[in-house]
Design a protein around this nucleic acid. Sequence first.
DNA 1: ATTGCTATTATGTCTATACATATTAGCGAG
DNA 2: CTCGCTAATATGTATAGACATAATAGCAAT
Lengths: 241, 241
Amino acid sequence: MTSSTTSSTINGTTKTWQAIQAEVRKRINARLWKPGALIPHEADLALEFGCARATVNRALRGLAEEGLLTRQRRAGTRVALNPVRHARFEIPVIRSEIEGRGQSFGFAILKRETLVPPPDVRARLKTGAKVALLHLETLYTADGAPHVFEDRWINLAAVPSIDEETFVTISPNEWLVREVPFDGGDFTFSALAATSKQAALLACELGQGLLVLDRSTHNAQAVVTSVRLIFHAGYRMHTQI
Amino acid sequence: MTSSTTSSTINGTTKTWQAIQAEVRKRINARLWKPGALIPHEADLALEFGCARATVNRALRGLAEEGLLTRQRRAGTRVALNPVRHARFEIPVIRSEIEGRGQSFGFAILKRETLVPPPDVRARLKTGAKVALLHLETLYTADGAPHVFEDRWINLAAVPSIDEETFVTISPNEWLVREVPFDGGDFTFSALAATSKQAALLACELGQGLLVLDRSTHNAQAVVTSVRLIFHAGYRMHTQI
DNA sequence: ATTGCTATTATGTCTATACATATTAGCGAG
DNA sequence: CTCGCTAATATGTATAGACATAATAGCAAT
């Protein structure tokens, strides 16, 4: 029958943009297209794959975002010389992370005060020498065991409503994620050897290596909060690419 | 003067997908569209912004990839309940990282041997109990100072040509990135306190906290290599979102 | 040789239309 | 009330055609 409703209008195989991506990936891996080399331009590939240029564009754009290709107008598309790989870490809400492992989540506010912070914190939050900030120290636990110690400074000007929050039922971590929209931030991983205070808090030996994550988040107006998370000994932050 | 602009949106000149993204972001941040809420569907937005549905699709797809929106066929698009944020770390070639800071790069192969690895390495590389692997220990330096100690195991079956490489002019790190295509891998950050050996290698105090990055990379066939990088004391790995 | 214009070219984006596909809502039979 | 079918619907993808934009190459004038 001359039914025009059949799906595969294209001879041979239906070439979705994902199929094209896979094919391009294969050619790069097989060194058919070598690092640094120019690959055929979109129109040619569209012709070869029997699809529209927009479909090729969709495929190549994705690979460029991954860092596998570099593209430039007029100059064309080439295989990346140094395939800069990106590791994407999910930064979850602490409660979700713990409960996701089937453990019980808990937290305790160890300190809550409003004062002018030390210079390094002032620098991170870009606040003046006389501006008081909210300072919170919280210990998060998993199945009762110390999980992470959080040392947080909050810009009250950016989050005024936080004054009314007691943090009895919701942790500072979760409250901020839920209530404060933000545009960006920065993350820094580092390591330190446990001081006696940290060893006591996190129930580890004095001098053990601890993973540290410093994070500050900002919106369009100001730096909202800056936090240092010191994880329990042996904690590993994992991701796949 | 007169409050002339009652403009519902940016009209006229540019209604690019990026402008639409920005507008949607603004509405989410302004809580006009609250977390969990359904937003108008693509056709409606296209009508409102005066553009084609494909353009709206492009904008919303990007926001969904970021994790700010969740989209489902037939069900529509809603603002993500807990915006899982992603930190994207670039994993550069060590030489590029050092030279990018204007420092001089160097490396020294401390050990090169071929032997059956211990069980934990066997597990990571998924090799048999009798398969010998190439083991390399390398110290990378920046301006002559220790930068990172690399302890690497390489699956010879996956990278046979490595036997001929002397690593005199090119480091193992760079050689592998350049010569061995891979599909994926996983990363784990952790911390340890410097042992006396590590302290000597990295020129730091005994017991200092050191940042550790374990990485293994695989292609379609096998796990190609597994590496542990132990960074010098005080090293900070930074990224922005 | 250097500068400056212009034509060329490959990617970037937008449009209008069409069909595919997943998921839900509704309805009828058991 | 539940199961199973069908219709409705929002996103996902593909298409041809068009124009925009950046970067290059070539050529001309200084």
